[in-house]
Design a protein around this nucleic acid. Structure first.
Lengths: 352, 352
DNA sequence: CTGTTAGCGCGTTCAA
DNA sequence: TTGAACGCGCTAACAG
């Protein structure tokens, strides 16, 4: 019935346009592909026709023909899916950047599924993705090595000790935790505890290093005051804090946590042990998630520059994919300590 | 050097296998495609060769040839990306189901990007997806209508008043909230407040309905005790609770929230107003997220059956896509009220 | 049961 | 500046 909307489901092809303007499909392809060897008049006519017909290039066909996919694959850490609010934020801006550059984002899984669909290696081999972004860098990562072998454009969130030459974006976790220790030490804390993330993750190692180094620098003890956990969730924060706080002596007066989730768990543990935050115990988290402004007390936390992370990741992977190297290819981003209600000077105590 | 791993990056094609076993590519295709018209001996040889060569079907080529994509597109609500913990959980099990059925999952965006990449309509038209799952059902949704017009397999999370015939999975929010009201009324609460979600979302409307209906049933007033917000986040919960609680009279002794995030915000507001939860105010959330077990106090909440939601969504969309209708095609799931520390009988008060 | 032929929509030679 | 012909890897229709 309607003239305008008859192409509701059907794909408008180059041939349709070619027929409309009475030219060969090849010419249409070149005109729309932005090649220079087409006369202006022809190009105009073709573009007009394309617009009128509502032409959209058929991505799948283009992929098969070119061997490129205009798709970037992001791979999260060992967790089954995206769980972490930080990743969601980063992915959000990352995705926007890709989109405005004409690229698509697909979330790949680390391990091959039953049918071999959707895992990173298959995606690369089948040219379904032009490049890969790894969102968690581990000390040792067989997947990472395989991707490197395949010579696929690759950018990391985090530095890899195995492959130090790769382009990356990273948050300076060492400096960040040092700053937190300094902040707490300046407040007067003498026993500052640390609840660490999984030791296989590079960023967890760096942050622990920062803690230990800063403790030495500021002359506060770290003996028996830190713990490394295998995950960075609520439950781990809770049990780690419970272990650290439920002692007869050497109880920390401040607790730095690898993640905000751990900090929430830690606050709960403190509460159950009869310790008030921040009066009896200061707590500092990491990531500055939205919830930090609504907990009781509001959580002091380290803010990563999520926007910059996403933008740099996009810039780097796109330049890798398009073969136009940008500088710098390795970006280390600073952090900001957002002080809220969960941290304050320690109570005066009856220590000699 | 190595014989085994020389096919590191290159795609092994059907032709490679065909050459190896000395047969035509077509036969190989049929054998691997599980068609019945291949002799057992041939199939065995072909499968063996495929295994040895490390063959993986080239998805893109298959898509172009068949017009099918073996990919399902999930579309979230009006928020820019997946923000909600519930969706993440649902998507996680949904994704597993798809994977084990040989399907891929792609997250589509609602609105066309600058370059027309990744939006749902383009994905469908270009046969990049075989079916669509809409994760939030709105009262009116132009996108939904367009997808229906295109006659694409479609399953909703939530019932659509515009398209009541569509297959869906939904949580019985009306019954859920009724149960909560009943629970609180039985505890002795006379003034039960409700903080609602966006009125354009079907589930928010249903839950509000459940609240109003139950209030009538149990003889408690709802006058001026409820509020509808345009989003369901922390900030909205906070300001809604602030508005409801910061009055000289008619202050509720219990607050039901559309989401856990809103409940967290509400608890913070109560705290700032000097109300203790649960002594002065009971708070109940919705979604039963992991954090509920770690807040202070732990949050009483309504648990949706996330696992079932994901599984049913997968079952329904797959049967739609494969053209084998399953029953029931419309699933309404119950909920469970998980009572924790944030709810208890109201304080005895000096009312006549 | 198996092979031959054709075509999915597009990009890219090579001639004209 | 334009067009004809070929191929990307795979599946489907039709013979044999």
């Amino acid at each position: 019935m309607q003239q305008e909307h008859k192409h509701n489901r059907a794909q408008v092809t180059l041939d349709d346009i070619a027929e409309r303007v009475g030219m060969s499909r090849t010419t249409v392809s070149r005109a729309l592909g932005g090649h220079s060897d087409v006369s202006d008049r022809t190009r105009q006519r073709i573009e007009k026709a394309a617009r009128e017909l509502g032409y959209r290039p058929h991505t799948v066909a283009r992929r098969l023909a070119t061997g490129r996919s205009f798709t970037i694959c992001a791979i999260t850490g060992k967790l089954p899916f995206i769980r972490d609010a930080l990743f969601i934020e980063v992915l959000d801006v990352f995705r926007r950047q890709l989109t405005s550059a004409g690229y698509d984002l697909i979330i790949g899984s680390r391990d091959p599924g039953v049918s071999g669909v959707g895992d990173a290696i298959s995606l690369i081999r089948q040219q379904q993705v032009d490049g890969v972004v790894l969102l968690e860098t581990d000390i040792e990562d067989p997947l990472l090595s395989r991707i490197v072998e395949m010579e696929t454009p690759l950018v990391l969130f985090g530095r890899s000790p195995e492959h130090p030459e790769l382009p990356y974006v990273d948050t300076d976790g060492l400096a960040a935790i040092s700053t937190v220790v300094e902040y707490l030490a300046r407040l007067g804390h003498k026993r500052i505890g640390y609840i660490g993330g999984p030791p296989w993750a590079v960023c967890a190692v760096q942050r622990l290093k920062g803690y230990l180094k800063a403790c030495r620098s500021y002359g506060v003890s770290s003996d028996g005051l830190y713990i490394e956990m295998d995950h960075s969730g609520l439950a781990e924060g809770y049990s780690a804090a419970y272990a650290l706080l439920n002692r007869t002596q050497t109880v920390p007066t401040a607790l730095i946590c690898y993640s905000d989730a751990m900090a929430f768990g830690a606050m709960r543990a403190a509460y159950e042990l009869g310790l008030r935050v921040p009066d009896d115990l200061s707590v500092v988290g990491f990531d500055n998630v939205a919830l930090d402004d609504f907990t009781i007390p509001k959580l002091t936390s380290v803010a990563q520059r999520t926007r910059d992370i996403g933008e740099h990741l996009a810039r780097l992977i796109l330049s890798e994919v398009e073969g136009e190297p940008t500088n710098p290819a390795q970006v280390l981003l600073g952090t900001e300590l957002v002080v809220r209600e969960s941290s304050k000077p320690p109570q005066a105590q009856g220590a000699p």
